[in-house]
Design a protein around this nucleic acid. Structure first.
Length: 1126
RNA sequence: GCUGAAGUGGUGGAAUUGGUAGACACGUUGGACUUAAAAUCCAAUGGACAUUAGUCCGUGCGGGUUCAAGUCCCGCCUUCAGUACCA
């Protein structure tokens, strides 16, 4: 009998915890319903990637915090949604599959099993009935569905939201695209409604792709050869892959992209509406990188200054180009290769002297490329598309200049050429005949002249329509435009090869080659070396019209802004250093500022000088004015620039969501109809890229879409090709898969209605749960998941699917739990190891060993070490004081450092409640902190004391009496009530402030006090259990049950704080002298200020302190402190 | 460089609107119980001097405001995190 009784009394945590975990599972205690009388509250964790290593003690930290909050909210009367699932697509499972041939689905399922067991043993109150897995077809069906929604949408800047693509098509049909204000690709061609109607379906599709929110584009991507895949910017750290640290190179590939840039401003503005941590918001702001300034066009001068001064110029001849001829020639060549339809038709008639005269097409004259020219007769023929309607003025000017040069220009429209070629040819013949006589005159006089003088008017004119563009730059300091003394282009800038003069070509090419060779990493590491080279070309200042030398330099990044800057050395340190280095003038345009040593970059203190119409203005005024003036000139406009780029959405991987996309006979991407989703991942023999370099899905035998009406199947290439084309839809399916963030960008909404097969979630569900109230997770997702999820949520909001355009009202980042690695010191070249205190006398190498062999005093178990790895078998150990002491290093918990501590052992040894309490007790939630198992005995002892508090009967029997403590108002009872209500108040405040560590202390204090008071009253001990139950739910359930409750403690009402129990009649006043506390004095709280002063001054100890001095001043703060000055 | 956070005993960390610095816990030391160990319980524990009382110094450093500063202000230093030739 006796041993049995003893067992009952003991705090048998393993048994208790298993019992209640089973109870919760069987009774579905934490299952949330989608409607309730209670107010709703949604607590979410970032769902884990189920890695093969399982959980370590760091993983549950955030889950414990959110679980405490969720349980607390249930006590507070909320209908709480607290779901959990798995982000189960990902690279590690795929790499494991490559190594072992095991299907990732199999290993993933195994890993999930381990995770679930580990999570269950910690006692989380998750509603597992709502579990989602991103790799489950019933889940990724909806990821694919969202992709289709994005494809079917475009971003209308006028309404500032995403709209259905069909709306855009009807605009195109009625008025073309000239008035459409959309976020779209750069350089979309302009067309009228008529032209749209005339386009082929393929062309229409190509144009629409330039508007869709997800689009196919040839993009320069971060290609990681080692991983065989493309990486997003946030997957690259210091120029190498985040995973594995492999080198990353730039490569052009056709990829799906997400037009997240459309949402840049709203993603930025939205940050002000959500309660997320400042550091996280700051990261996102930084990532979006908004800068306000101006875009300025600098025309390129046709003649380089050097050549002009030398009095030379280009000879008129076969190609009579100006000094920009080398770049125009390329352009002309390109235009010849891609004639418009009208040009092609006309050329058929003009070529081979068909009209009796030799014509050339797309020929360079001066700085112009003309469509057709007969040089002998100086007759130019231009064929104009619609674009020229808006350029009548420029065309007139161009005609004037050319005609000054004795050319005759005749123009035809596309319609004339295509509709009535006969009459066009008649006109040309007529002109040719008329110009017969002029030709001979010219030969003698004018042509000679033109060889000596550059074509008049060419110098200094605006950018010609078909020739050189200017260089466009982005600047945040347009007010400093008069300080520009040179321009700098990124070496990769597309215009560099075109503008470089022949004299500079060699130097420029060498420089470009040298920069290309340097890795991104080298370039970033070596910021101080100034390098660059002059291109030989000049641009023209918009206002002063002065020539500005154009340089290239690697301090200008191709990927930001336009890849070109106007360099203002007096106002920007980098420009300043560059100018100093290359002896470029540094004009000073600031009033009263010395720039002899460094640039002056202080916007706020700027007063502009030496700047014509800007003189005397401050930064703001000058900026406004200069933008206005630039707009008048047509050479610039105010512009806001974002660093945020569109997100590449394709990955060359197997283990990810397949795109619901096939490519039709014309190679155009087509969406698979919603009703056929999900498009499931095909089986493949191997998970590596194919021999031809295609993604792993290229290995699938059947990966062609074949659809007739409502019937669709996935077939092999041969089967598809042999199928009847009549009424057939389909083609090769997309070989890429979606990136990791696809599945995590709407999972929080899917939890609201996870089994819905007809919709991503029902309207009722989303209307009830609305948005996440509290989201807890790591800050490492700041610019990845958390940005993309906000983007998709805004899109879902625009489309009317969700009621809020932010998915998480409040977000908290839990800090990371770090490992404390253990280090032994091997004497170099030997198999001897010295203890830490002796290592300085030797030449040693540090070797990390398993922390589980080391005790709290840093002493290692040598026997265990010898068995741990063969190299230690016969090693010799040099001890200090009989022990081998290891070194310690705090670093990330990782298998490679052997510093991983597993929660399974902790649960086994101390119990889940101890683990939960200890993780909270370690310190503030957001803080990074090292794991130190030694301290866990403290919280474990607390739980034992708590258990004891309820077992004060004979032989430790459960003993709680239901007679109220207030009865008789004994001293002990009043003290107990005070302890309880003090605790209620503090714990409630702590939970609301997510200060979980301090509430654990509060529990300890309460239990220590109640133990000292020998409290056995139910009125105290029952509410105390509810306070503790969010933190230590198992022991709370057990004691709750012992108190006679039939149901779970989880929905018991949180105790009400009653301030009346804390009312004190007296206060132990600290009495300080000159601010230093010397002694305390117990005084009634209702004592008046004057009486306090009197009493204190009369006190013996006060007299002792003053030693006869007269106090100068006595400060009395009733209820707080007394301070005597003197 | 910029942005954000933080520097408090041997350790993790408390400290409300400025009002008794070091709560709570670990560790350490001493003691009780025990043949012994574990467990448990009790006591001490910021430093220095004195050890009866007491005195002085103490929250990264240097100033300042105040009757009173870990807390507020100014100027630095260090650490961690994020970000970076962003024009």
């Amino acid at each position: 009998m006796q041993p049995y009784k003893r067992d009952v009394m003991k705090y048998n945590f393993n048994e208790i915890e298993a019992k209640w975990q089973k109870y919760w599972a069987e009774n579905q205690t934490f299952k949330a319903v989608n409607n309730s009388e209670k107010p709703k509250y949604y607590v979410l964790d970032m769902f884990p990637y189920p890695s093969g290593a399982g959980l370590h003690v760091g993983h549950p930290l955030g889950y414990i915090a959110s679980d405490i909050y969720a349980r607390y909210k249930r006590h507070k009367g909320f209908n709480v949604l607290h779901p959990q699932g798995y982000d189960s697509f990902g690279l590690p499972a795929e790499q494991y599959a490559i190594q072992t041939g095991q299907h990732p689905a199999v290993t993933t399922a195994e890993n999930i099993k381990t995770y679930r067991r580990q999570l269950d043993q910690i006692g989380f109150s998750f509603d597992w009935s709502r579990e989602v897995r991103t790799s489950d077809p019933s889940y990724y069906k909806w990821t694919q569905w969202i992709f289709i929604q994005l494809f079917e949408s475009w971003y209308n800047n006028e309404t500032n939201k995403a709209e259905d693509i069909s709306g855009l098509v009807s605009i195109f049909e009625t008025e073309g695209n000239t008035k459409v204000n959309a976020v779209c690709d750069d350089g979309v061609e302009l067309f009228s409604a008529d032209e749209w109607q005339g386009f082929s379906p393929e062309k229409q599709q190509t144009i629409l792709l330039q508007y869709r929110l997800t689009y196919l584009a040839e993009t320069e991507v971060n290609w990681c050869p080692a991983l065989g895949t493309v990486l997003a910017n946030d997957e690259i750290v210091n120029g190498v892959s985040e995973r594995g640290g492999h080198p990353v190179i730039r490569k052009k590939m056709t990829q799906w992209s997400m037009r997240i840039s459309a949402y840049a401003e709203r993603l930025l503005q939205g940050l002000d509406t959500i309660d997320w941590t400042d550091s996280l918001k700051e990261s996102q702001r930084n990532w979006i990188g908004k800068s306000v300034g101006a875009q300025v066009e600098f025309p390129i001068l046709p003649f380089s200054q050097g050549e002009e001064k030398a009095g030379t110029h280009t000879r008129a001849g076969y190609m009579t180009g100006g000094n920009n001829s080398h770049l125009l020639l390329e352009r002309a060549k390109e235009m010849r290769a891609n004639p418009t339809q009208a040009e092609a038709v006309l050329w058929e008639q003009l070529r081979n002297k068909n009209l009796g005269a030799k014509f050339r097409q797309q020929h360079l004259i001066g700085d112009y490329i003309v469509d057709f020219v007969c040089l002998k007769k100086r007759l130019i023929i231009e064929v104009d598309g619609k674009i020229h309607e808006s350029q009548i003025e420029e065309d007139a000017k161009r005609t004037e200049i050319l005609e000054n040069d004795y050319y005759k220009v005749i123009r035809f429209t596309n319609e004339e050429v295509l509709g009535n070629i006969e009459s066009v040819l008649e006109n040309i013949k007529k002109e040719l005949a008329e110009r017969e006589s002029i030709q001979s005159d010219l030969e003698a006089s004018k042509l000679q002249q033109s060889e000596q003088v550059p074509p008049s008017g060419v110098r200094g004119m605006q950018v010609p329509l078909s020739g050189v563009r200017g260089i466009s730059v982005f600047t945040t300091r347009p007010d400093t435009i008069f300080g520009v003394s040179f321009m700098t282009l990124a070496p990769e800038h597309e215009l560099v090869p075109q503008i470089t003069t022949p004299e500079q070509r060699e130097a420029v090419d060498a420089y470009i080659l040298a920069t290309a060779k340097r890795s991104e990493r080298d370039r970033m590491a070596d910021v101080k070396t100034i390098s660059g080279v002059f291109t030989g070309a000049y641009a023209e200042h918009p206002f002063t019209k002065a020539p500005i030398p154009i340089w290239i330099g690697d301090y200008v990044l191709a990927g930001y802004g336009t890849g070109a800057v106007m360099s203002v050395p007096c106002g920007d340190q980098r420009d300043y250093d560059f100018a100093k280095h290359f002896n470029i003038p540094i004009p000073n345009i600031f009033e009263g500022v010395d720039i002899s040593e460094e640039a002056f970059a202080d916007k706020e203190k700027t007063v502009i000088a030496n700047s014509d119409f800007l003189n005397g203005m401050d930064y703001k005024k000058a900026t406004k004015r200069v933008i206005y003036e630039l707009e008048q000139l047509g050479q610039g406009e105010g512009k806001t620039n974002y660093r945020l780029r569109d997100a590449v959405f394709s990955r060359q991987r197997y283990w990810g969501e397949p795109f619901p996309v096939y490519y039709d006979d014309n190679g155009m991407p087509q969406m698979i109809d919603e009703k056929f989703l999900p498009l499931e991942l095909p089986e493949v023999d191997k998970y590596l890229p194919t021999e031809t370099g295609e993604p792993p899905l290229g290995n699938a035998k059947k990966w062609h879409w074949l659809q007739y009406g409502d019937k669709a199947e996935i077939v092999s290439k041969e089967e598809f090709e042999n199928s009847s084309p009549l009424g057939r839809l389909g083609g090769a399916l997309e070989l890429n898969t979606m990136p990791g963030w696809a599945g995590s960008s709407q999972y929080f909404n899917r939890y609201m209605d996870p089994h819905n097969e007809d919709a991503i979630f029902s309207k009722d569900a989303i209307d009830y749960w609305q948005q996440v109230d509290l989201y807890i997770g790591g800050s490492e997702h700041a610019t990845g998941h958390l940005l993309y999820a906000r983007f998709w949520q805004k899109f879902m909001f625009d489309k009317g699917f969700v009621p809020y355009d932010e998915f998480a009202k409040k977000l908290i980042n839990q800090g990371m739990i770090l490992g404390t690695s253990a280090i032994v010191y091997r004497i170099s070249g030997t198999n001897k190891y010295v203890s830490k205190g002796l290592k300085d006398s030797y030449d040693v190498e540090e070797i990390r060993v398993d922390v589980n062999m080391v005790n709290a005093s840093d002493e290692i178990n040598i026997e265990a070490l010898k068995k741990w790895q063969p190299q230690f078998n016969d090693a010799e150990f040099i001890l200090e004081a009989g022990h081998y002491i290891v070194g310690r290093e705090v670093e990330k918990m990782s298998k490679r450092w052997f510093n991983v501590v597993n929660p399974d052992n902790i649960c086994e040894q101390y119990g889940a409640d101890s683990l939960r309490l200890y993780e909270m007790f370690l310190g503030p939630l957001e803080q990074y902190k090292p794991w130190n198992t030694a301290g866990i005995t403290g919280v474990h002892n607390f739980l034992k004391k708590l258990w004891k508090l309820y077992h004060q009967g004979d032989n430790g029997a459960f003993y709680v009496t239901s007679s109220p403590p207030s009865e008789g108002l004994g001293e002990a009872s009043r003290e107990a009530l005070k302890t309880l209500h003090k605790t209620i108040k503090k714990v409630e405040e702590d939970i609301e402030n997510f200060s979980f560590n301090t509430s654990v202390s509060t529990f300890m204090i309460a239990v220590n006090e109640l133990t000292a008071q020998k409290c056995i009253s139910k009125e105290i001990l029952e509410p105390l259990l509810i306070l503790i139950s969010p933190y230590a739910p198992h022991i709370a359930e057990e004691l709750w049950n012992k108190l006679g409750h039939e149901t779970s403690i989880s929905t018991a009402d949180f105790p009400k704080f009653d301030a009346s129990h804390l009312v004190e009649s007296s206060k132990n006043y600290p009495i300080s002298f000159n601010g230093k506390m010397r002694f305390t004095l117990e005084l009634p709280l209702d004592m008046s200020k004057d009486d306090i002063e009197k009493t204190v001054l009369e006190n013996e100890k006060t007299k002792e302190q003053l030693q006869g001095r007269e106090p100068k001043k006595v400060i009395v703060v009733p209820g707080k402190i007394v301070n005597i000055v003197g």
